[in-house]
Nucleic acid binder design. Structure first.
Length: 221
DNA sequence: GTTCTAGAAC
DNA sequence: GTTCTAGAAC
């Protein structure tokens, strides 16, 4: 099975047939799976389910969905946002259970996805993971660089001027891919980091500090 | 996505 | 000399 099409396969599958190591939960319209290469302590993908005969819209990517019927696109993305919110609550529960405190979660799309079938990233903001290895991995989740598109921001596009919606929906690969090569900057403190090992040590330190403060606050309450 | 590796950076 | 990046091959 090509990794490029694996999400589409899941979207078409009977959830009962998806391995439990892959599937976290399923709802009538979406599936939540564990990201196979998690870039944070918690990292999930939420994908819209699809019937085999479904030709209502092209669910290949955010771009193809936005290019289709606008009302349908909004409905699809809003549904994902709702399911991601529920997932976020579940993640927070796990954070408290496993680590004794909770920290923030990001929910959004990659402007240029690496796999087919629309998928929403839901990940904790630590970015501490052995799978976080390359500059492009990091920059693709940096919340301020523009490659990672927060879902609430995407939803505001629907209420903007139609010309703005058209422009921003183009999601031109060339422009966005350049972002992945930008300098490594800590998303939290804006410090520029020399290289990936330095950045990773910095992120780990930031999270350790947050954990210490969080646990203390939790104990005190 | 991963592995391999040349050459740049340190 | 060692560490790190980035492009090619898979």
């Amino acid at each position: 099975m090509s990794h490029l099409n694996i999400l589409r396969t899941y979207a078409l599958s009977d959830p009962a047939k998806i391995p439990s190591a892959v599937l976290f939960s399923n709802k009538s319209t979406s599936l939540t799976i564990y990201d196979a290469f998690p870039k944070s302590i918690f990292h999930f993908l939420v994908l819209p389910r699809m019937a085999k005969e479904d030709t209502t819209s092209d669910l290949t990517s955010l771009k193809t969905v936005l290019m289709g019927d606008k009302a349908y696109a909004k409905k699809i993305i809003s549904a994902l946002a709702g399911d991601a919110k529920i997932l976020g609550d579940e993640i927070e529960g796990e954070m408290l259970k496993r680590y004794g405190f909770k920290w923030d979660i990001w929910t959004g799309f990659h402007a240029v996805p690496s796999m087919k079938h629309l998928h929403l990233h839901v990940l904790s903001t630590d970015l501490c993971s052995g799978r976080m290895k390359l500059k492009k991995h990091y920059n693709s989740f940096h919340p301020k660089l523009g490659f990672f598109l927060d879902i609430d921001a995407v939803l505001t596009w629907f209420d903007a001027e139609p010309s703005y919606f058209e422009g921003v929906s183009k999601l031109e690969a060339k422009a966005y891919e350049a972002i992945l090569k930008e300098d490594l900057v800590c998303w939290s403190c804006n410090t520029t980091m020399k290289n990936m090992p330095t950045l990773k040590a910095h992120l780990q330190g930031e999270w350790n500090r947050q954990a210490k403060l969080g646990r203390k606050a939790d104990k005190g309450s």
